[in-house]
């Protein structure tokens, strides 16, 4: 498409450039590279090389970090935020800025385990060796609205 006479011309108004196709190709290739990296990183157990207990968090961290970088690239290049006005940049950031605010809910679930009150939050971190015996798998689940309130949790067997 470089043969188009307009391809190198900068549009004056609003600061919107018309970019070379190569920019889009490079961006897409980078993203594809990161995609392969994510899959590859998931095959390798980084964490347990470092810590036997909580090592898998390293893998999680890597996966999320790669996703963040990919997002960053998409937002900057495909969504043209790199060339946007400061107002556009502000609003592009706003949502991503507020995600941490939303995630502050985590503090509650983190702190609960340090309470004098019995806690809910725990990592279940076990070796699953034998199949679990299923006493009552939810066959008898009561649909909302079908039956009200009584015996949601089965009574004792005695």
């Amino acid at each position: 498409m470089a043969k188009s006479p307009l391809s190198a011309v900068h549009d004056d108004h609003g600061g919107h450039h018309i970019h070379n196709n190569s920019m889009y190709v490079k961006t897409a290739l980078t993203l594809a590279g990161f995609m392969i990296l994510t899959i590859a990183a998931a095959q390798i157990d980084f964490g347990h090389m470092i810590s036997k207990q909580y090592g898998y968090w390293i893998n999680n961290l890597i996966a999320v970090l790669i996703a963040v970088v990919k997002t960053y690239i998409v937002v900057l290049y495909f969504m043209h935020v790199k060339w946007a006005s400061s107002l556009g940049k502000l609003f592009a950031l706003l949502g991503f800025f507020f995600i941490p605010v939303l995630f502050s809910v985590w503090t509650d679930f983190y702190f609960r385990q340090h309470e004098p009150v019995a806690h809910w939050y725990n990592n279940d971190y076990v070796e699953s060796a034998t199949p679990r015996i299923i006493g009552a798998t939810d066959g008898a689940k009561i649909a909302p609205g079908e039956e009200n309130t009584q015996n949601r949790i089965p009574k004792s067997v005695w």
Partner: peptide, 15 residues
């Protein structure tokens, strides 16, 4: 981009 690694590519927490 986020859904894929979170759902399909979980690391194994087992030792």
């Amino acid at each position: 981009i986020f859904l894929y690694p979170l759902f399909y590519l979980m690391p194994n927490p087992s030792v």
